[in-house]
Amino acid sequence: MQKSRLLLRERFSPVTYLFLSIALFLTMVLCICVGSVRITFSDTVTAVWNAVWGLPIPQNIAKNIILNVRLPRVLCVTLAGASLSICGAAMQGLLRNPLADGSTMGVSSGAALGAIIAIVIGFTIPGSAYGGTMIMAMAFAFGSLILILSLAYALDRSLSTSSIILIGVIFTMFISSIISLLITFCSDHTRSLSYWTLGSFSGVNYDQVKLLFLALLLCGGVLFRFSPELNAFAISEDNARHIGVNVKRVKLIIMITVSVLIGVCVSISGTVSFVGLVMPHIARMLVGPNHKRLLPASLFSGAIFLLLADLVARTLLSPIELSIGVVTSMVGAVAFVIIFNKTRKAR
């Protein structure tokens, strides 16, 4: 048999995950160390280690910066990057569309609109500071997903790659204009426009870390559980039906799960584009398209990518902090063109 047909990833092994987790750990430490105040590697590790085990932290360490500013931010970015990336991987599998992602399909914008409406009308859930915005973000994310898919279906029954993206882009523009309108009239209620459209992780705290962690654990677990079904969908929806997948049910579950996770992310950090588009592709190059391996690999690579993007955003023009979306979109737009070109050639 021709050697060229053999896949590189036949050499794949669990070592890939070991490598990815070490890389993630080092990136996290790096992101805590680097900033307007430089902190040494050993101080970072000592502070976090001692805090975790309840030990006293030496006086000379910048405890406040490490534990109350950088660590929650780094954790939040890690979890959000991981979440957005597995959502992208799941949608690319479900829709068999390598360009699908919360941001390209307009789901994130929908979620942002939901969050803003919740803030403007003062929709809250008693006992939870973020509950109201989060629920609305999730609901709007799901609503947008359904709307975009039905519009794309009406346009072209085969749900082709480009028609979904086209509808997504137009939908995003439409939603963005509504968001600007709302913010213009109610600017004293909500955060700035750039926060919602480009995202930011400044000022996050441990409550948000906990929420993100919980959401990722739950939704990530569901998506991982459905990896055989995602594989079947990635081959084709018809094939999924033929091998006995409950197509409607599984589709609905995955879409709800993805909407919930994107909703939580957006209500915490605004819309951070392109993470979910680009990182699953990198992960696919490393471990192949099988979602059992792809989802964990996307999780790691998404987290690392977003950490680095956040690092660049807050240090590049220091003391001015850029929106994180500025960085992810710059990388993502180039990647989008490359991926789009590759898909067209493959047809």
Partner: peptide, 21 residues
């Protein structure tokens, strides 16, 4: 659907794959 798939195996006319499975 899974019960049906154990009874009836369907081969579609058009089959193609988008990813490198």
């Amino acid at each position: 659907p899974s019960e049906l798939a154990r009874k009836i195996g369907v081969l579609a006319q058009k089959n193609n794959v988008g990813y490198a499975y």
